[in-house]
């Protein structure tokens, strides 16, 4: 598997923050999965920018390990929609959650 170089914490600190940054909230997404359609291609798990998804140990009726949301990343989805648009199987979609 080819790994992307990771940004170091040090680099993050020296980034400048826009003055109005506080007025914007990071969007939040809710992931919906059709486990029976998943064919375990791993596109979503690999291309999710926040690594929210992982393969489940369970198998579906076709013998694939369907994708699921990581327990520790339940609130990390930012509704970018990458998983949905890269899923060849129409097995996953994201709904943006309104932040109060």
């Amino acid at each position: 598997m080819i790994k992307e170089p990771k940004i170091s914490e040090n680099q993050r600190e020296i980034w400048r923050e826009p003055v109005n940054f506080g007025r914007f909230a990071v969007p939040k997404g809710e992931i919906h999965i059709f486990p029976e359609r998943c064919k375990e291609c791993n596109y979503c798990t690999n291309y999710c920018p926040n690594q929210v998804l992982e393969r489940s140990p369970e198998v579906n009726v076709y013998g694939y390990h369907p994708v699921r949301v990581r327990e520790d990343k339940k609130d990390s989805c930012v509704a970018c929609g990458m998983c949905q648009s890269i899923c060849p199987d129409f097995a996953i979609f994201v709904k943006e959650v309104k932040i109060q």
């Binding site: 029976e36 359609r37 064919k39 291609c41 791993n42 076709y62 890269i86 060849p88 199987d89 097995a91």
Partner: peptide, 17 residues
């Protein structure tokens, strides 16, 4: 669904686009 294409096939993405 599920469709006939193999795991990792890009055709589903094409259909979605």
């Amino acid at each position: 669904f599920p469709h006939v294409w193999c795991p990792g096939c890009g055709l589903g993405i094409e259909l979605q686009c």
